[in-house]
Amino acid sequence: MSEARIVMDAKSMERALNRMAHQILERNRGVEGLVFIGIRARGDYLAKRLAAFLDKLEGASDKDRLPIGALDITLYRDDIELVRPEVRTSEVPGGTIANKSVILVDDVLFTGRTARAALDALMGYGRPKSIQLAVLVDRGHRELPISADYAALKVETARGQEVIVNLAEDGKNDSVLLK
């Protein structure tokens, strides 16, 4: 494989997430009923960042910050017959998404299998008003009929290539690499 190429640096990641926050605000005409839920691992970090951008845009006080949750999709994987990955906790604010507009956040959209698992997992928390998918990178090669509502970066990739997302929350410099 060739050298890793930087397709997004820290500055452009910040700008891209900020732009995505604006798009979410515009499309939902405000923040009423919004809840941000990130897919572990890394989607939960991005969900926090997006929600923070929106809180800033809306001038939210400490007590009316947007609710943020984290989702572990392990138990919904379609290859669970073959593997037994570590199960991490899921945390949905208030324990339900009934009548909420869920912004589901993940780092990379690839085959769509993780997003499918996440949709099934979310349905266990009640009937939401809507679910919108927000991703940092859409790299193509879908295997299921799933698309992102918001993508900070669309990048052409070969199927065998690897997209690496580094985030400050993991003690790394914010960046997206293509290898």
Binding site: L75, Y76, I80, D120, A121, G124, Y125
Partner: peptide, 8 residues
């Protein structure tokens, strides 16, 4: 959860 079942 409101629906306390997973398909695992």
């Amino acid at each position: 959860r409101p629906i306390k079942k997973v398909p695992t």
